[in-house]
Computed example of a mutant assay.
Amino acid sequence: MGFADQRFSVNLSILFTELPLLERPAAAAAAGFTAVELWWPWADSPTPERSELDALRRAIEDSGVRLTGLNLYAGRLPGPDRGALSLPGEESARFRANIEVATGFAGSLGCTALNALYGNRVDGVDPDEQDALALENLVLAARAADGIGAVLLVEALNERESPDYPLVSAPAAVAVVDKVNAATGLGNARFLMDLYHLAMNGEDLPAVIAAHTGRTGHVQIADSPGRGAPGTGTLPLERLLDQLAEEGYGGWVGLEYKAGDRPGARAFDWLPAAARAAR
């Protein structure tokens, strides 16, 4: 087994960022990849102009790559925000307005995974109130995702980089997944297992994989420390991905790391060209 047996998707919101967004799908294709994923590309707008959506859709289609994952509106990302769905008031309303737009865009490209970042805790607001709002919005998103045959992902982040984000362990994120599935009866809420964030939280990654692969809908990787390419840190990523496969995970592995001083195609020197095209 090993890296050559995985199905990799390039996150175009953190890689190829030296290029304009509309040029990144073609750059990923030129580097040998056939799948890409994205954070919500319009941080200031949950409902961008149709022309902007159409331009990005054409860029993806014309490049010949497949969109395998898309974040729902999450506020300023990269930036201080970590999602909007648990924030009362305007941001929650913006998240709800985004659901139809994002699912429509994803569905038009055959994308079957939507990631809903939970959002930071808000000073002066009861956490139970935020959690109730989060469940309400996640249920709406899960139903919309089901309408296009997609899963809804819930992600744990790391406490060091996201100190106000409440889901900072695999069990915390999986508990939310279970609540959403219980509320909808659809079973399409899934855990997004980001090995970098979990490692930064000090979790036992083999134990997490053994316990939660069955509820996992997507995996993302970066090495730790540093959030760089595999091989730049200390995580045994090849071995961990092998364990995931042994536990039955056959989905996409998102490359969500920083290129550092090796931008462009050089950011993928660790991965043989023959292993980049998903089979």
Score class of each variant (00 low, 15 high):
D261A: 13
Y257A: 00
I221G: 10
Q130R: 12
L140G: 02
T68V: 13
P127F: 12
E37G: 09
P166V: 06
S92P: 12
E256T: 04
P171I: 05
D146N: 12
S92A: 15
L192R: 00
A142C: 07
G226P: 06
A141D: 11
G214K: 06
W40F: 08
D269R: 08
T216M: 11
D81Y: 04
S108W: 00
Y249R: 07
E203N: 01
E129H: 14
R190C: 08
P166C: 07
Y118Q: 05
Q220P: 03
P163M: 03
A35G: 02
H212F: 15
M1Y: 11
A28I: 09
L133P: 11
E256S: 01
G64C: 06
E136L: 12
A274F: 02
E100G: 00
G248N: 14
G185L: 08
R57N: 02
A74Q: 11
L255W: 04
T234D: 15
H212G: 07
D5E: 15
G260T: 04
N201Y: 09
F268S: 12
V125H: 07
W39S: 05
A141C: 12
A210R: 10
G250E: 13
L152N: 09
C111Y: 00
F105Y: 05
R276E: 10
A141W: 02
G217D: 13
Y73V: 13
A145R: 05
N201R: 07
G185F: 10
A59S: 14
E136P: 08
C111N: 01
L157A: 08
P206C: 01
S162E: 12
Y73Q: 09
A93S: 13
E37K: 00
P171F: 07
